[in-house]
């Protein structure tokens, strides 16, 4: 098999006494959709931060296309082809929608004209063209999610990290999202998606990694994951925890 595009090797992330990621290893290949699931607080967003360069992990390495990127900051990793969305959306609220997307495009070009054209294309792709001139702060929450995806795509990523990008969408919108993710995969991008709604992630993912309490507890094709004892009990555990709370 070819070398993986993303190779996470033994990543551990501690916050004081709390171990958010513990010796996590996983790979994602070009043209693959990898589902990353797990109960709340399992460490999924923390792992995204380690891959995108928001914080350097306590231990472990991150490789992109064979190159060690562990020491690089977030902007440099973006330049190398890692893009991500945030679970809690982070728009540039005083900028127009199209300007938000241009910020992403500027990592590949210094020409404002090219960046604007690129932004228009990407906004078409996510169905935000009609909102291009609105202020980002005036968007509805589902539109903000789409803007997050548009900005990430404008950086022309090789690896796209989607952190609950479909949360809060109506079934129709979610269906459009699913189709977009498929199209991106077919264009050769590797996608890692964190998703809570199993009905979305299971049919879409080629492979699934399950995190619980910061550890990888299962990995495999969706059909096997849904039957895995440890996965079932982790999710049952979550429900039990929720009931107690």
């Amino acid at each position: 098999m070819s070398e993986p595009l993303l190779d996470v090797r033994g990543v551990t992330q501690k916050f004081g006494g709390l171990v958010a990621n513990s010796d996590v290893s996983m790979q994602a290949r070009k043209g693959e959709i990898l589902g990353l699931i797990g109960p709340n607080g399992a460490g999924k967003s923390t792992l995204f931060n380690a891959i995108a360069g928001v914080c350097k992990p306590t231990r472990g390495r991150v490789f992109l296309a064979g190159a060690d990127v562990t020491e690089l900051g977030a902007p440099q990793r973006c330049a190398l082809g890692i893009a991500r969305t945030f679970q809690v959306v982070k728009s540039f609220e005083t900028m127009q929608v199209v300007e938000n997307v241009m910020v992403g495009a500027f990592v590949r070009t210094s020409s404002a004209r090219e960046a604007r054209a690129k932004a228009a294309d990407v906004l078409d792709l996510v169905g935000l063209r009609t909102r291009a001139n609105a202020m980002a702060g005036d968007l509805t929450p589902p539109e903000m999610r789409r803007l997050e995806v548009a900005r990430a795509l404008a950086t022309e990523p090789k690896l796209l990290l989607l952190d609950e990008a479909m949360t809060g969408l109506t079934p129709t919108e979610a269906q459009q999202g699913v189709e977009l993710v498929r199209r991106l995969r077919d264009s050769g991008i590797a996608i890692v998606m964190v998703e809570h709604v199993m009905e979305i992630v299971m049919p879409l993912a080629d492979r699934v990694v399950v995190l619980d309490l910061g550890r990888v507890i299962a990995e495999g094709p969706p059909a096997e994951i849904v039957r895995d004892e440890r996965v079932i009990s982790a999710y049952l555990g979550e429900r039990r925890r929720a009931r107690r709370a």
């Binding site: 928001v54 902007p75 540039f92 005083t94 900028m95 990592v107 210094s110 404002a112 960046a115």
Partner: peptide, 26 residues
């Protein structure tokens, strides 16, 4: 105003984390 610097500056002002994730060295 129409160079990437002003976009980077405004992005860094509005949300530094998001700016960095989009390749802006804040």
């Amino acid at each position: 105003e129409e160079s990437r610097w002003s976009y980077w500056w405004r992005a860094a002002k509005d949300n530094a984390d998001a700016a960095e994730s989009l390749g802006v060295d804040v």
